[in-house]
Simulated scan of single mutants.
Amino acid sequence: METRINAYIKGPNAMKTLFNIGNYLKTSSVEKRLLELVDFRISQINGCAYCLDMHSKDARADGETEQRLYGLSAWRETPYYTNRERAALAWAEAVTRCEVPDAVYEKVKPLFTDAELVDLTLAVTAINSWNRFNLAFPTEPGTYKVGQFG
């Protein structure tokens, strides 16, 4: 297969826009550890190996446990996650699948402020965008270093 373009070099303004969203989310009131879980889970759904590598490393560096990362694909059946995390994961999966039923909204709404829910939704859309860029223009998994992007 022919090597694909490097989106970071050929589309720096587009990539800068995504990095700016990430910089905004670093100041969000949604806790970083929860955002990493969401990023990891959505990357599992989308099959993005580079993002799985990145977010597993960042989550571990932030104190996340191996058990919780390994169990994330079966989060509904495991006792490792808080109600807030469960609501966020359900929301993230629903937004990713473009079907957000009232039942999911009713579970997430009591656990997040309006601003947090908007930020969580932005985080979900951002990781979906990153996943799609990394699938369209592959970046080699295993090459990410914690803190590499700021």
Rank of each mutant, 00 (worst) to 15 (best):
T3R: 13
R4S: 13
I5Y: 03
I5D: 01
N6C: 07
A7K: 08
Y8H: 12
K10T: 15
A14M: 06
A14R: 01
M15R: 10
M15F: 09
F19K: 07
F19H: 07
N20Q: 07
I21Y: 00
G22K: 08
N23P: 00
N23F: 01
K26G: 03
T27I: 09
T27P: 00
S28T: 03
V30T: 02
L34H: 05
L35T: 05
E36I: 02
L37P: 01
D39C: 09
I45C: 04
C48M: 13
A49W: 14
C51D: 06
L52M: 15
S56Y: 10
D58I: 04
R60A: 13
G63K: 03
E66I: 12
E66K: 06
E66S: 07
E66C: 03
E66M: 09
Q67K: 14
R68M: 10
L69N: 09
T78Y: 04
T78G: 05
Y80L: 13
Y80G: 12
Y80W: 11
Y81D: 04
Y81E: 04
R86P: 14
A88K: 03
L89Y: 08
W91N: 02
A94F: 04
T96V: 01
T96K: 02
T96W: 00
R97G: 00
V100T: 10
A103Q: 10
V104R: 00
V108D: 00
V108G: 02
P110E: 02
P110S: 02
L111W: 15
F112R: 09
F112Q: 08
F112S: 05
D114Q: 12
L120W: 03
L120G: 00
T121M: 10
T121L: 09
T121N: 05
A123Q: 08
A123F: 02
T125M: 05
T125G: 05
A126H: 06
I127C: 11
S129A: 14
S129D: 09
F133L: 15
N134K: 06
L135W: 12
F137T: 02
F137I: 01
T139S: 14
P141V: 15
G142S: 12
Y144G: 09
Y144K: 11
Y144M: 13
Y144I: 12
K145S: 10
V146L: 11
G147N: 10
G147T: 12
G147I: 15
G150A: 10
